[in-house]
Simulated assay, not measured.
Amino acid sequence: MNDSVLKFYEELAEDYHLIFVDWNQAISRQGEVLDKLIRSKFTTSSAHNISVLDCSCGIGTQAIGLAKYGYNVSATDISPASVKRAEKEAVSHGVHINFGVADFRTLDQDVSGVFDIVLSADNAIPHLMIDEDLNKAFQNIHTKLNHNGLLIVTIRDYDAMVKEKPTITQPNVLDEGKRIVFQVYDWAEDGKTYTVHQFIMHEINGEWKTKHNRTEYRAWLREEINNMLNVIGFTDVEWRFPEDTGYYQPIMTARKI
């Protein structure tokens, strides 16, 4: 993970909600989908009995959504600005979440206790660009899980993306044409990594302003992730896709044995 990742989220924290059509609606919808998935994996009838660590919480989209369903949520992120924003948003949504700043490669040192679930959503894991870092993150997640604990990861469908190598997303025109959001992708020659340029164009008081942020990702294939999880000691690795879950990204789950 290079310095662009922290810079990207530090600079984007204030405006991150503008990426969404309706961020509050996304909180509700993603919380609903994740709650349904979790309930299919646990026998307990009460979410209050299930502890969750969201280890890449950003400004709190999934953490707040799950806390609204009654889960015992802790949340960390590498970006102090994002965590500060998430703390404020949790208060405004009336939920209690234990927040902290942590890198998911050092969770064992940075976060106390163990959890029934460790979650990393919104394509955060692919910020880890090399095998060593991904292995380190999964090892640390493994130590933070209870026996038979569940890992949940959501990432882009890289098996499809490396074939197509898209260069731009469809611009999302919002707020009656006063906000336009899109991304430009610059792929490396080997097709394994790419730079994302995030653009938010916003009309404010008749004046258009453009915000540009950039960061880098590794296009991890499902087989690569599956093999690494199996070596570390995870089992029952499963992938679910948007057409089945209603979630906007593929969802991977795995158990700690």
Score class of each variant (00 low, 15 high):
Y185I: 06
G246Q: 08
T167R: 14
E224A: 03
N123R: 00
G206I: 09
W220E: 01
R39V: 04
T76D: 01
L128Q: 01
D22E: 11
Q249S: 08
Y248L: 04
E216M: 06
F115G: 00
H142S: 07
Y158K: 03
G94C: 09
S92I: 10
S112D: 11
V52D: 03
E203T: 09
I168V: 14
Y185E: 06
R218M: 06
Y16W: 10
T154R: 07
R214C: 12
V114D: 11
H93N: 15
V73P: 06
F115P: 01
V91G: 00
L151W: 10
T253Y: 06
V73I: 09
S45M: 10
G100P: 03
D22L: 07
K36W: 09
D175I: 07
V196T: 15
K36N: 14
H197T: 15
E189V: 10
G246H: 08
T193S: 15
P250S: 06
I204Y: 10
D35L: 12
Y71G: 01
L134M: 09
L150H: 07
D3Y: 08
I232E: 01
N213W: 07
V91L: 12
R156T: 07
D108N: 11
F42Q: 11
T215M: 11
G233D: 08
S82W: 02
V5G: 02
Y16R: 07
E238L: 06
I117Y: 01
N123W: 00
E203S: 11
K163F: 04
G191W: 10
E164I: 14
K163H: 11
P242F: 03
V153N: 08
E207T: 14
S112E: 12
R85Q: 13
D110R: 05
D54H: 07
D122Q: 03
S51Q: 10
N213M: 13
A219N: 02
L12N: 08
